[in-house]
Structures are given as structure tokens and as C-alpha cells.
């Protein structure tokens, strides 16, 4: 009986944690995307540096590293007035964030299909 209660508690806690975690990651990535769209690259990078340690627990290193690279390079490209680089890294950063949002989204497509990756 004790193990049964523990099992039910574990399932409920995991379910709750998964929902909260997905909401947090989607919210954080959404805010980052909004900052990028508004051209606030420095603020986006600062927010990313605050969120990255948490996200690293739940998201694959490759995706974290991709977002990290593009966000840092974006700031550098702007400071060098490199328009092409800025566009490239802006697109890359937004794609990486969308990838993370999709990773935490639940749908028939996400369950049965491999997500499209560029």
C-alpha cells in the first residue's frame, strides 16, 4: 500500500512538474523571441543567460548551444554593423527558440512525427 501511494504521488508530481516546466520554457522562449523581434538583442542575451542554467536540465545540449551561439553572435554582428550576419544569426536564434517551444508542445504531430529541422 505504501509503495502504491508513493507511485501515485510520483506520477502526480511528475505530471505537475512537466506541465509547469513546459509552461515556463515556452514563456521564456516566447519572451526571448519578442525581444529579438523588437531588436533588443542585449536584453535578449541577458535574459538567455539567466534562463540557460535551468533549461540545460531539460533541453538537449545541441539545441542549447545553437541558441547560445546565435544569440552571442547576433550581438557581435550588430556591433560590427554586419547586416548579413545579423540577419543570419537573428533567424538562427529565432529558429532555435521555436525549436525549444515545439519541443515542449504536445500535439499529434509532435507525438507521432519527427519535428522538421532545418
Amino acid at each position: 500500500m505504501r509503495n502504491f501511494i508513493a507511485a501515485v504521488v510520483i506520477i502526480l508530481v511528475v505530471a505537475g512538474a512537466v506541465v509547469l516546466n513546459a509552461a515556463h520554457i515556452k514563456s521564456a522562449c516566447g519572451e526571448l523571441d519578442s525581444l529579438l523581434a523588437a531588436g533588443e538583442y542585449r536584453k535578449a542575451l541577458e535574459k538567455w543567460e539567466r534562463e540557460r542554467p535551468y533549461m540545460a536540465f531539460f533541453i538537449r545540449d545541441g539545441e542549447i548551444d545553437a541558441a547560445d551561439l546565435h544569440l552571442r553572435e547576433l550581438e557581435l554582428a550588430r556591433s560590427r554593423n554586419d547586416r548579413d550576419g545579423e540577419q543570419e544569426h537573428l533567424a538562427g536564434a529565432r529558429d532555435a527558440l521555436i525549436e525549444m517551444i515545439n519541443y515542449e508542445s504536445v500535439s499529434l504531430g509532435s507525438i507521432f512525427c519527427v519535428p522538421f529541422r532545418r
Binding site: N3, F4, A6, A7, V8, I10, I11, V14
Partner: peptide
């Protein structure tokens, strides 16, 4: 691992 183990305990109960 935690979810599947717990599900097994629930089912066996």
C-alpha cells in the same frame, strides 16, 4: 524511469 516504475506499481496494485 520514475514514471514507468510508478505505473508498474500502480498496475500491479
Amino acid at each position: 524511469l520514475a514514471v514507468i516504475s510508478s505505473a508498474e506499481v500502480v498496475f500491479s496494485f
